[in-house]
Design a protein around this nucleic acid. Structure first.
Lengths: 164, 164
DNA sequence: GGTCAATAGTTGACGCGACACGGATACGAG
DNA sequence: CTCGTATCCGTGTCGCGTCAACTATTGACC
């Protein structure tokens, strides 16, 4: 019902007026493409009853090993803000995939660790997650990937300079 | 501890392990760059008490003129799900920037229109909005923009083919 | 006319991102 | 020891995306 053969973004959205500039078209293309990727990820992960964000957190926890990770460190690695991570881990812990415990030396800190059940889940999902990025970018050649990475880095640079 | 001069994404996130592939790095770069743009937009629009999505809807309403646009058409142009648009317009209408009225011929339909106050708001914000995309992509030359657009189109193509 | 499917839109419930604020703890200054 | 301040974290609130279920209306078919 939503069939959408691939076209340029300009053709997809705008019956009313064209883009004012190629920069604007690129910006919109960027946002819409990323949104498409996000939706695909959600759909790919949903059979396991987990969201991409939760998967992301579990990967971070696994990477941290038995020692665990403080809540704020998770937030940094995800580039999310603190309150969100707290509740994200609430839900993950409620499902038995992660645990929290206070640090004894500094009782403000809370170390989060992944449980065996969480590790098992990740093991099942890893091939799936690998397939997502491989599939989405499968059509790009090596030099196109380089160009894309370069352009994105330049965009981030421009934004960060502008925000200081 | 939070200093972040612009670097490659690999350096930014991962102290634990490098990317498994350049495709994965590109995917993460795409997501993070777009997220940065989104945050910048939110920040730029917030002084006017409006979100980027609300601005987007108002632009669509303005483009549609006095006749207005049915709710589902707005959803299509935004590529969003229906329930979200309904409530988005709820909030916009509550602020006095838009109105809704039933169509007489087909009483299922609801036409949404922008109010004079909404037009005034848009007029104030247009230069700001133009500055956002201009600023974010200012560092890219014409041929880099073309490359970026091509790569993004290819990604969308791969995803949409894969989702059928 | 009555029934049924399709269409347009809304509502409810849940998860997530962002901001503001508060509570608890650590740590240094006096 | 006490006070102020910084840090780590949690909570309340809001905006928003999404699914599922629902209402209202239309139009076709018997």
């Amino acid at each position: 019902m939503k069939a959408k053969p691939s076209r340029t973004i300009a053709e997809e959205i705008v019956q009313t007026k064209p883009f004012r500039s190629k920069r604007q078209e690129a910006l919109v293309a960027l946002v819409r493409t990323t949104d498409l990727i996000r939706r695909m990820s959600v759909e790919a992960f949903s059979p396991h009853g987990i969201t991409p964000q939760q998967y992301n957190v579990l990967r971070i926890l696994r990477g941290a090993g038995k020692g665990g990770v403080p809540t704020l460190t998770i937030a940094e690695r995800m580039m999310e803000r603190t309150p969100g991570v707290t509740r994200l881990i609430d839900r993950i812990a409620a499902r038995g995939w992660a645990e929290r415990r206070r640090c004894d030396e500094d009782r403000r800190r809370v170390f989060c660790t992944i449980t065996p059940a969480g590790l098992k889940l990740l093991k099942e999902m890893d091939p799936l997650a690998d397939g997502v990025d491989a599939g989405a970018l499968s059509g790009l050649a090596e030099d196109e990937l380089d160009g894309l990475l370069g352009a994105l880095a330049e965009i981030r640079r421009a934004i960060q300079v502008g925000m200081d």
